[in-house]
């Protein structure tokens, strides 16, 4: 099939970007979206033009590297899918596509479709861990964990850190990402000890990174390739207020 692509090109973080048009022919329905861009890039290189830069790595939807919006949808319109697993059979012959980087103040564009998502690392750095040193652990089965809690913690921990939640949110909020990690750890007995400090530190780091706040559009949940629930945001709000108000008392 044939497609008309409008791809965001931007030389670097300071230069202004613009859409560039490409007509791609011979697109196979079995190609992944990124393979379609690979083919375009091979042609560009052969013509001596710079290929479209985009982040990608595992191409099986788990590393969280790939990040672009197709027609305004982060990772494309298909639910629960990263753009590396989006296949061209989801599109129609002759369709015109708008391919853009993830848009948010917290994710400045580096080049073309590549954005700087290091703010997420700084949020994790601020408290997204259990302070245990190697070798300190007791036997793994010494603390039983309710299966339901372990399962919900796993639901939250499934986050791949791609940033689609931020990209989809009309407010550029990172609350789904932040709340997923806070809940993953707060739900487990190992993470309970530092619950208050973690929640406060991560929420405030998130705010300091310039992300917006949730006004309950629920766009993040539907864009999330792992379908992480917005319930976690609600839990985070509760945990934050509690920690802030009573945290010093160790409640």
């Amino acid at each position: 099939m044939k497609l008309k692509l409008n791809v965001w090109r931007q030389k670097d973080s300071v230069t202004e970007g613009a859409f560039e048009n490409f007509n791609v022919n011979d697109v196979s329905e079995h190609m992944s979206f990124l393979e379609m861009l690979d083919v375009l890039n091979e042609d560009l290189i052969t013509d001596g033009k710079e290929p479209v830069a985009f982040d990608h790595d595992c191409r099986e939807g788990i590393c969280g590297s790939c990040a672009m919006s197709v027609n305004g949808y982060p990772h494309g319109h298909r639910k629960g899918t990263t753009v590396c697993q989006l296949h061209m059979r989801e599109f129609n012959d002759g369709e015109e596509l708008w391919i853009e980087p993830f848009r948010a103040k917290g994710f400045p564009v580096i080049k073309d479709l590549v954005t700087d998502r290091s703010a997420f690392d700084r949020i994790i750095e601020s408290g997204g861990y259990v302070s245990v040193r190697t070798g300190q652990a007791q036997d793994a089965n010494s603390i039983p964990i309710r299966k339901e809690n372990a399962d919900v913690a796993m639901d939250a921990a499934a986050c791949i850190g791609c940033g689609a939640c931020v990209a989809a949110c009309p407010n550029g909020a990172a609350m789904l990402f932040t709340s997923a990690k806070i809940n993953h750890l707060n739900l487990l007995p190992q993470g309970q000890v530092e619950k208050n400090e973690r929640t406060i530190a991560m929420v405030e780091q998130m705010q300091n990174e310039g992300f917006g706040s949730c006004t309950n559009h629920y766009e993040c949940e539907s864009a999330c390739p792992k379908s992480i629930s917005i319930n976690f945001i609600s839990d985070m709000n509760k945990a934050y207020i509690k920690s802030k108000a009573f945290g010093k008392a160790g409640i």
Binding site: W98, R103, K105, G106, P170, N171, G210, G212, H217
Partner: peptide, 23 residues
């Protein structure tokens, strides 16, 4: 704050879950 956090929107604005009211 939210406006500042999203300085540039998408060329094609598309939504899945947000509503006229929420926006």
């Amino acid at each position: 704050l939210n406006k500042a956090a999203k300085p540039i929107g998408y060329k094609k604005t598309t939504y899945k879950r947000s509503t006229f009211a929420s926006r």
